[in-house]
Simulated scan of single mutants.
Amino acid sequence: MTDEPTQVQHPARAAVRSTAATLVGLGPLVPLLVANLGQTRAAIVLAAALAGNAVITRVLALPEVEAWLQRALPVLAATTAAIPGRHRRDEQ
């Protein structure tokens, strides 16, 4: 067993999961986009949003980026050190 978060262990899976969640979130906007932009432009906007999400998720899953996030921006890291008093298990 490794100490790496699952996003780092399986970066493609993390990207697919995140992209699927983005698609679900953008789903209600599709009719609005089509009505205002037309089918072709709406498809381009959606494809760009989904591709951008996948790329960003994949970059965030790099071990080097995860290590940097843990040091510099722990709130964005996949795993962080436990902070006493900040977790429900600490209160039990």
Rank of each mutant, 00 (worst) to 15 (best):
1 M>Q: 07
1 M>C: 10
1 M>W: 06
2 T>C: 00
2 T>M: 04
2 T>L: 08
3 D>Q: 12
3 D>H: 10
3 D>Y: 08
3 D>V: 12
4 E>Y: 02
6 T>N: 11
7 Q>P: 08
7 Q>H: 01
8 V>R: 09
8 V>E: 00
9 Q>F: 02
11 P>Y: 04
12 A>I: 09
16 V>W: 08
18 S>F: 00
19 T>M: 12
19 T>L: 06
21 A>V: 13
21 A>Y: 08
23 L>N: 03
24 V>P: 04
24 V>T: 01
26 L>E: 05
26 L>A: 07
27 G>I: 05
29 L>F: 04
31 P>E: 01
31 P>R: 15
31 P>G: 11
33 L>C: 11
35 A>P: 05
35 A>T: 14
35 A>L: 12
35 A>M: 13
37 L>K: 12
38 G>T: 15
38 G>H: 13
39 Q>V: 11
40 T>P: 04
40 T>G: 11
41 R>H: 14
41 R>E: 15
42 A>G: 02
42 A>D: 05
48 A>K: 12
49 A>S: 11
52 G>W: 12
52 G>Y: 12
52 G>N: 13
55 V>M: 10
56 I>G: 07
57 T>K: 12
58 R>T: 15
59 V>Q: 11
59 V>W: 11
59 V>S: 08
60 L>V: 06
61 A>E: 02
62 L>K: 13
63 P>L: 03
63 P>Q: 10
64 E>L: 11
64 E>A: 15
65 V>N: 06
67 A>Y: 01
67 A>T: 14
68 W>Y: 09
69 L>I: 05
69 L>C: 09
69 L>S: 13
69 L>T: 10
69 L>M: 14
69 L>K: 10
70 Q>L: 02
70 Q>S: 11
70 Q>K: 07
70 Q>R: 15
71 R>N: 11
73 L>M: 14
74 P>S: 13
74 P>T: 03
74 P>Y: 03
75 V>L: 13
76 L>N: 02
76 L>K: 10
78 A>V: 01
79 T>W: 02
80 T>A: 15
82 A>T: 07
82 A>P: 06
82 A>N: 00
84 P>Y: 02
87 H>M: 08
88 R>N: 04
89 R>H: 08
89 R>E: 01
89 R>W: 12
90 D>G: 03
92 Q>N: 04
